[in-house]
Every structure is written in structure tokens, then in C-alpha cells.
Amino acid sequence: MEATVTDDPSVIQSADKVIFPGVGEASTAMNYLRERELDHLIRNLKQPVLGICLGLQLMCTYSEENDTECLGIFEEEVKKFNSAEDHTLKVPQIGWNTIYDLKDPLFRNVAENSYCYFVHGFYAGSGIDTISKTDYGESYSSGLHKNNFYGVQFHPEKSAATGEHILKNFIQF
């Protein structure tokens, strides 16, 4: 498989598959997309698209992170984890947590309650597009799917064998 890192619209449009990764902050990332008119482009992609971490969050309607309007692909809003007064719930969530209620070909041959690696302070709620859940303080969407768009809150590229399996499933779509 050949991968290219790009923000060139024609390269993105002609790709077989698009991975929309994210390390960053929501408003900065959305501004970057808007300046290059990539927000419209991403919404209108027809090939399989996988958003990772911030990528998933930007594909939702809105993020509490610096009050940011997002792409509106998934029917979810992104909220901040509530750091408990006694600091029992650390924010951001950093580390290995389980994914469950797996219901999508993206998770083909992935066992319920497999461990994946998460690093995030904001999360998407659960609803009609949810394809996997994770618990941290409360239950939230660790995976979303709508039409040709997929999103995972964890980092498959950092989730050892489980993550590689999920990426392989996506590549085979």
C-alpha cells in the first residue's frame, strides 16, 4: 500500500481511501481546513474516509474545544470530559482502554473488549452513528460510521496488533 501525506485537493479527491488523522486542537484545525476549502471537499468525498482522534471529532457537528463548528458528517457533538473534583477522572484520558459493542465491518475479527490506545480530552456522544463504545466516566463513541465515513477516537496506528487489524479492515473496504 502506498500512502501520501497531503493537503492538495486534487490528490485527496483522487485517492482510493482517505485517512483524516488528528493531533491538534479543534479550532486551529478547522481554520486550517477552511482556509484551504478542504472542509467542503472532505464532506463531499465518496471514497472510504477514516477520521482518527481529532479527525473523528472534526467530523462531528460541533466541538466544545474553543467553541468550534465542525464538518457535520456524524450526528454527534463533542464535549469535554468532566474532571472530577477529587481528580479520580483524569483529563485528558491517556492510555489503554477497551472498546465494546462492536458492530461494523471495520471491527471484523476484532474481539469485544480489545484494548486500544486513547489520548483525548474531548469525546463524541453515542447515537445512531455509533459503532463502538468505550467507558471513561461515562459511555461514549469510540467508533462512528455514516455512509462512506468512519471515525475512531483511539489511535489504531498506536494500538499494537488490534490497531493494525482495524487499519487492515479499512484498507480492504
Binding site: 491538534g24 486542537e25 486551529t28 481529532l54 491517556i94 489520548v119 483525548h120 480530552g121
Partner: peptide, 9 residues
């Protein structure tokens, strides 16, 4: 750094 890249990193 937090503003640019997010606190998580």
C-alpha cells in the same frame, strides 16, 4: 504549545 497542538500531547 497547548493552543497549537492540544494539551493531550
Amino acid at each position: 504549545l497547548a493552543r497549537e497542538f492540544g494539551s493531550q500531547c
